[in-house]
């Protein structure tokens, strides 16, 4: 479980996050949604410690993360897997080396054991046999999946995904979504997914938080989000004609 308490972050006069509090439960896909530029990525970066919040607390299973010193933070981070908005694979390494990288850095596994683990992870994301390609030789959708494989190679307790399906076709999107949901359930981890794709939200979101004007404007389940009377969230959810028709049909 990850708990965020009263977290605020500004860049100069730009108050991006204001007093955000939320709980992300274990074994669930927790979603952060909101308009572009609303501060979703900034929130995720504050939570994992890539940015320093101005005030507030972040707790990983009741341990205060912000107050930790660097060594303690590193211990927590070894349990965090993160999928970046752009994939962030290491260009200079093959797919297999990318996945094995955290293992070589932090475990004493033998080369053959690491290979087995890499193969397992690749199979899990349906990319068996792509071990020796370089990231530049793979497609955008494959890169996302490789990044997921790398994120789960250390068997993390917490998984962050920043827009896992941006730039992907609807079918590939669904493959990635399902992958994230299945991994969350199988490994019983706390997953946080940032998205603006309503499809994914309805499909895999167990718990949803909507950021608006830097605040935690609304939170609830995917059922609740379709029926809420909250004006701002309706504007967001029913922005597309498709969702509007869907709503009318449901009503």
């Amino acid at each position: 479980m990850i708990e965020i308490k009263n977290l605020s972050k500004s860049f100069g006069d730009n108050h991006v996050l204001k007093n955000i509090s939320v709980k992300f439960q274990r074994g669930k896909v927790n979603m952060i949604i909101g308009q572009s530029g609303s501060g979703k990525s900034v929130l995720a970066k504050c939570v994992v410690g890539l940015l320093k919040p101005d005030s507030g607390e972040v707790e990983y299973d009741n341990q205060d993360f912000i107050a930790m010193d660097l060594d303690e933070k590193i211990e927590v981070r070894k349990n965090i897997g993160m999928l970046f908005q752009g994939g962030a694979l290491f260009d200079s390494m093959t797919v297999e080396e990318n996945i094995m990288f955290p293992l070589t850095m932090f475990t004493d596994m033998k080369k053959s054991e690491m290979r087995d683990r890499a193969n397992e992870c690749l199979e899990r994301v349906n990319l068996a046999g792509k071990n020796d390609l370089y990231p530049a030789e793979t497609s955008g959708g494959m890169q996302k999946r490789i990044a997921i494989a790398r994120a789960i190679s250390m068997k993390p307790k917490y998984l962050f995904c920043d827009e896992p399906n941006s730039g992907l076709d609807p079918q590939t999107s669904i493959v990635i979504d399902n992958l994230i949901r299945d991994i969350t359930e199988e490994m019983d981890i706390t997953t946080v997914v940032i998205s603006h794709d309503m499809n994914s939200v309805i499909e895999i979101g167990d718990y949803i938080m909507f950021i608006y004007k830097g605040e935690n404007w609304w939170e609830g389940t995917s059922k609740e989000i379709l029926s809420t009377k909250n004006q701002e969230i309706n504007d967001f959810v029913y922005a597309s004609e498709f969702m509007k028709t869907l709503k009318d049909k449901l009503a």
């Binding site: 070894k78 962030a88 955290p102």
Partner: peptide, 17 residues
């Protein structure tokens, strides 16, 4: 610099490297 702007350095930091 390329590693920085493509978030590869963030990826290293997140892993605890």
């Amino acid at each position: 610099g390329t590693m920085r702007v493509t978030e590869q350095i963030d990826a290293l930091d997140i892993m605890g490297v």
